[in-house]
Amino acid sequence: MAIEHADVLRAAHLARLGIDNTDAERYVGDLSRILDMVDALSGIDTDGVKPLAHPLDATQPLRADEAIEPNRRDTYQESAPAVADGYYLVPRVVE
């Protein structure tokens, strides 16, 4: 399956990557070659094969319901680009 310019722009938007038209052109080439390689899968008969999401056939462990995490806001916010009064700041969100 080929990837087109519009697909790249669409993926870039979904992934919130600010890629312009010129960049997109370059990615069309790279991504096409990757997808060409991936196309080797399309001819494989996988009828009745269960998808494998995890390499081990393990099941989810469950955690006891205990509130044990201390308040570490100051530490966590040391790496934050913009905070005020304990809030993380972003450009105004219109709802």
Partner: peptide, 15 residues
């Protein structure tokens, strides 16, 4: 389906 699901199926064959 064509990519992700297929890849997970082939992953099982590889394992």
């Amino acid at each position: 389906d064509a990519y992700y699901k297929k890849a997970q199926q082939v992953r099982r064959l590889i394992r």
